[in-house]
Write a protein that binds this DNA or RNA. Structure first.
Length: 538
DNA sequence: TTAGGGTTAG
């Protein structure tokens, strides 16, 4: 079977293979039937080898049905649509599709979706004889297609299928897997509706469903995520629940709460894994919580021996060391990584940039580009910020203009804020003001705030007053800006100005918190929004 | 077989 497939290029079991050869040697027993070998190799993600076994399998008796889902998974993973079509034909010949075998049906649907062949998947579902197919199979088929559409962020299609399945699937209607597929792509207004549906159907008490809700709410509201977490019975919380709620707080800028959750998690005897530690390290970096971060570093080195191959964990460690530990440590980790992502590069560039090593930051940026990594918006912010901190006015301008012309990136508010900062620090307040006027979108608090900061450095009270007027309109409760303006008045001996700012703060019920004199980032900025494509209603 | 937790910016 599968004789039309291109021959596999057998890899030598290097870093791309998630399992070690010793583990495989233990699991692959040449005496077991070939179709079980296929299943095992597939589970180990050794797709090419699984297909090789399949290709050389004895064609009589005909291929065991158990091997077909594995074959499909391998073909999808290796982007072999012809292989999927062959298995489809084979399964059809043996009467396993469109209806009778739930495993093969959902594997086919998901393989077509993974390969982007959504019409094929759609057709398969439409061919399913609704009357004679067991309801559980219909449910699974709908779930597979909904998950496939979710994979391609086709929110309206997901919900259209969901409406259709609730009519079709007698009795069962939907299950936890349906909710898990829909929640991540649901528009913000629909998430609570799905949550209500989960509660009505008794699925809300499932750990997986609660975990998914925590993660989805966590993108926009750590508070809602926390509510779901708090309502979970203690015994049903698992490592994923803790990680999801912790990450929600870390992403929402609530680093103190994230670390408190970590402390509680450990108190309950739950051992973190790499994903948990990514969130913990992110919070340590924000808070400059050096001792906790160093504990995590030790834990990783002792308990997670393969951590260097984990790009996300390594990037988080680099970020931590670069921001509040040491640049040499960050650099060493970076050098040791077998594969680096744009995030690893950006973490390093940020680290050098924020410690005033603009030249090194620029050098790494250029090395990154020369290795074929196309800069994204975040790496450009890191670079421009590095230029700004090191007073590299000309380089900053050069890269800002290169964004659109060379890298095809449209500058966002963050980039404008960096440029206003760069121009402002260089004393070019007039140019900074002109840049703001030329922006294609209205300036936000961070842009005016950058100008205000520059005015403070260069003691330009008049320009500062204008920036202040704008910034407190945009972020009226951000104490940092009032403090900045008051300090400017103090520096220039204008006590009446200081009194005015203090009066404004009193009127607005704002207090300067001790030890918090820096400009506080607006909590809504930089947050991933909930998916908002289309107006979905259930 | 469909399915839950993640990193980088000022």
């Amino acid at each position: 079977m599968l004789d039309h497939l291109p021959p596999p290029r057998l890899t030598k079991g290097k870093a791309t293979e998630p399992s070690t050869s010793a583990a495989v040697a233990g699991e692959i027993d040449p005496t077991v039937p070939w179709y079980l070998q296929v299943c095992t190799l597939t589970r180990l993600r050794r797709h090419r080898e699984a297909l090789a076994v399949l290709r050389h399998a004895d064609p009589s008796p005909p291929p065991h049905a158990l091997a077909l889902p594995s074959a499909l998974i391998c073909c999808a993973a290796l982007s072999l649509p012809s292989g999927v079509a062959q298995v489809h034909a084979l399964a059809a010949k043996r009467g396993l599709v469109p209806a009778s075998d739930s495993y093969i049906l959902s594997a086919l649907l998901s393989s077509y979706c993974r390969l982007g062949l959504l019409p094929c998947a759609r057709q398969l579902l439409d061919e399913m004889p609704a009357a004679s197919t067991p309801p559980a199979t219909v449910l699974t088929a709908f779930n597979s297609l909904i998950s496939g559409c979710a994979l391609h962020a086709l929110t309206p299609a997901c919900f259209a299928l969901f409406r259709r399945m609730r009519v079709h699937v007698a009795g069962l209607r939907f299950n936890a897997v349906t909710l898990l597929a829909l929640l991540p792509v649901a528009p913000a207004t629909v998430v609570p509706q799905l949550q209500a549906l989960a509660a009505q159907s008794g699925l809300a008490s499932r750990t997986t469903v609660a975990n998914c809700l925590i993660s989805v709410y966590g993108r926009s509201s750590p508070t809602l995520a926390r509510q779901v977490f708090d309502e979970m019975p203690l015994a049903t919380r698992d490592l994923v629940s803790w990680t999801a709620v912790l990450s929600a707080h870390a992403q929402g800028g609530l680093a103190v709460d994230a670390l408190e959750l970590y402390r509680r998690m450990r108190g309950h005897g739950v051992e973190p894994d790499a994903l948990t530690l990514v969130g913990v390290l992110s919070s340590c970096s924000h808070l400059a919580a050096r001792s906790v971060g160093l504990d995590v570093d030790r834990y990783v080195r002792q308990r997670l021996p393969g951590f260097r191959a984990n790009v996300q964990l390594c990037s988080a460690l680099i970020n931590f060391h670069a921001r509040c530990g040491s640049l040499p440590q960050a650099q060493q980790l970076f050098d040791e990584m077998p594969r680096k992502s744009i995030v690893s590069w950006t973490a390093l560039i940020t680290g050098y940039g924020m410690h005033g090593h603009g030249d090194i930051a620029i050098n790494f940026f250029q090395r990154m580009v020369s290795q074929g990594i196309r800069p994204d918006n975040v790496s450009m912010v890191a670079l421009l910020s590095a230029c700004s901190h090191a007073g590299k006015y000309e380089e900053g301008c050069k890269y800002f203009f290169a964004m659109e012309s060379t890298y095809k990136l449209r500058p966002t508010l963050e980039h404008y804020a960096c440029m206003v900062d760069l121009l402002g620090r260089a004393g070019r307040l007039e140019e900074a003001r002109e840049l703001i006027s030329s922006m294609p979108m209205p300036a936000d608090g961070s842009v005016w705030g950058a100008l205000l900061g520059a005015c403070k450095i260069h003691k330009n009270v008049e320009a500062g007053e204008e920036a202040f007027k704008h910034v407190i309109m945009l972020e009226p409760s951000n104490v940092g800006y009032y403090v900045l303006m008051a300090n400017m008045y103090t520096d220039s001996g204008q006590q009446d100005g200081v009194a005015r700012v203090r009066a404004m703060m009193r009127e607005r019920g704002l207090k300067k918190e001790p030890g918090r004199t820096q400009v506080v980032r607006s909590s809504v900025n930089g947050r991933r929004p909930l998916a908002s494509t289309g107006e979905e209603n259930l």
